[in-house]
Design a protein around this nucleic acid. Structure first.
Lengths: 149, 149
DNA sequence: TTCACTGCAAATTCTTTGCACCCAA
DNA sequence: TTGGGTGCAAAGAATTTGCAGTGAA
């Protein structure tokens, strides 16, 4: 579960990227905030609170870079901004839409039955699954309580 | 699978909304384009091609309204714009993040085993699941072939 | 010296809002 | 006549980009 800084350095080196102080600081923010889903602005604010200051544009550029390197996972919760999280390379997958990372094509997928059948899905659709995203929308207890007033 | 126009009318009436010509036209666009994931701009363009013209702002307002009424489902494929699709009220659900529609809070959820256990998830987390979204990221055959060059 | 990187400000892109006008109930 | 709807243009918000300056190899 730890970040192998040296292997990360290598990843950078391979692509002629540099592990600059700004990038390290931003990476550290994610290490210090596991489980949170930070937006670019969140990261920017956290960095500022820690004395250091990094341009917002640099934050955006770094988040994109780290996502490309699979260090971060970009996600969207429908609140109008992208959020990022350390990619801990966790667990299984699910289904629904097959979205091609290269051309953006969205392939509809029948539906349900599966779970571990992900592999079968992949085969049938000739789609190499790299990552998945599952989201539930609903109401948390807190909000339900409030609305009972 | 058909849209019960009259029940829709009722839905509108109940909330003192009006099923205006513009709204009907936009709804028709989705009926004519099942399975596609249209952005506001897509809808706007399609409408224009059909002679009629509707202000882009009205398109946005209508998409929001129809989503509220569960006629459309708003989705995000990470391409920087919201996309919409007829909500055919399909099937089961899955899991991962519990996102509160009211406060936006994101509740982490353990992981995997389930599928039909969604109900249990709901119970354990005290979260009322209204909707879910599942996405796979990967590469389609076409793109894999191209990259083999 | 070079080339990736940075910060800042301007520019883009998607979406929302303010406001005057319109129309069906 | 009233209140929801609409269009247009302006405003907002998130993100990207242009560009000059910086620093490590």
């Amino acid at each position: 579960m730890n970040f192998d800084l040296s292997s990360l350095r290598q990843k950078f080196r391979e692509r002629d990227y540099k592990l600059t102080p700004q990038r390290q600081i931003i990476l550290q923010v994610f290490i210090d905030n596991r489980g949170k889903h930070l937006s670019a602005e969140d990261v920017h604010n956290i960095v500022r609170q820690q004395s250091s200051d990094i341009g917002l544009a640099t934050v955006y550029r770094t988040l994109e870079l780290l996502s490309e390197l699979d260090v971060l996972q970009k996600m969207d919760f429908g609140d109008g901004r992208s959020r990022y999280e350390l990619n801990e390379n966790t667990s299984p997958h699910h289904h629904h839409h097959l979205i091609c990372l290269t051309c953006g094509k969205v392939i509809e997928f029948a539906d349900d039955l599966l779970e571990d059948l992900e592999n079968m899905i992949a085969k049938n659709s000739n789609f190499t699954i790299i990552d998945h995203q599952v989201k539930f929308y609903g109401y948390c207890q807190e909000c339900r309580n409030k609305s009972e007033v």
